[in-house]
Nucleic acid binder design. Structure first.
Length: 279
DNA sequence: TAGAGCCTGCGG
DNA sequence: CCGCAGGCTCTA
């Protein structure tokens, strides 16, 4: 599991094609708290979902949005280990199944499974979604038209001495990039991960914008990256692991120059890069 | 803008 | 046993 923008986008597209128009008959919850020990609001989920029709499935950054005929939207964040899958109701439930949304007719269920419980399930009013605390502070979405080299440059200039890797992971500045695609985008733009964000030139900001867009688009086309156990809504693996240039390849040769790739730790997270191609 | 913390599971 | 994992929040 462990999803970034392309993995969530893949799940959103699959679910949109399969369950928009369906009615949720019943909501079952494990009762265990999720992210930051917060309890899932059982009565809010039942009120917003049970007996209502699914009208839309969207994505904002790494949030999946399920718009209901009740006028409320279910926000799902998969955290590090969350999985959302549409499965036959006869199949036995996996360990750590924290929510089951039974669809009318009884054949299929949408199940939320999350061993580490870093995920989120909350309900917010659809007519005021932008004001939801989860979405309010999100930065530029790199898959939208708003994500231009200009806009990225302005955001880079707005930082105070953080390095560019930390910038890419900060969802308040750029929303949707995670640890895999941060390393991959910096490699594509040939920028060193420890470069200071606010000192990048306009030319480098443009290269970075192009690389971020390219890396994410390619990952969506490949239906996401399956490293350990990410699976889409139908339980299938992605294919983007075959496109990765640096992630988890430390010690192996750079495909471009042959130098030995390195792994460093920034903000307590691994970064992979080529010491020769990235300056 | 770091660092610890939140959780479980896996691989060395 | 240890470190590590594709995320985010809260604190200093």
């Amino acid at each position: 599991v462990v999803p970034e923008l392309p993995e969530v986008e893949t799940i959103a597209r699959d679910l949109r094609a399969r369950i928009v128009g369906a009615r949720i008959a019943r909501v079952e919850l494990s009762g265990k708290p999720l992210r930051q020990r917060r309890r899932v609001d059982r009565s809010a989920l039942e009120r917003a979902l049970a007996g209502h029709r699914i009208e839309a499935i969207d994505r904002r950054a790494k949030y999946l949005l399920v718009g209901m005929s009740s006028g409320e939207t279910l926000l799902v964040h998969l955290g590090m280990s969350g999985r959302l899958a549409l499965v036959s109701a006869d199949l036995s439930r996996a360990a750590h199944t924290h929510a089951v949304f039974a669809l009318e007719g009884g054949a299929d269920e949408l199940r939320f499974v999350d061993p580490r419980r870093f995920g989120t399930l909350v309900v917010r009013r659809t007519d005021n979604l932008d004001a939801a605390p989860e979405l309010r502070g999100l930065g530029l979405d790199p898959t939208r038209a708003e994500f231009t080299a200009q806009a990225l440059y302005a955001r880079l200039r707005g930082t105070r001495g953080c390095d560019v890797k930390a910038f890419l992971l900060d969802q308040r500045r750029l929303a949707g990039v995670g640890n895999i695609y941060a390393s991959e985008a910096l490699y594509g733009a040939q920028i060193h991960p420890r470069a200071i964000a606010n000192s990048l030139s306009r030319a480098r900001a443009r290269r970075l914008a192009d690389a971020v867009r390219h890396v994410l688009e390619r990952a969506v086309e490949s239906r996401g990256t399956t490293f350990r156990d990410y699976l889409d809504a139908q339980g299938w693996e992605g294919e983007n692991q075959h496109n990765l240039q640096v992630f988890m390849r430390d010690g192996q040769p750079c495909y471009r120059c042959g130098a030995k790739l390195r792994r460093i730790v920034q903000q307590a997270r691994s970064t992979y890069y080529c010491p020769c191609c990235q300056r």
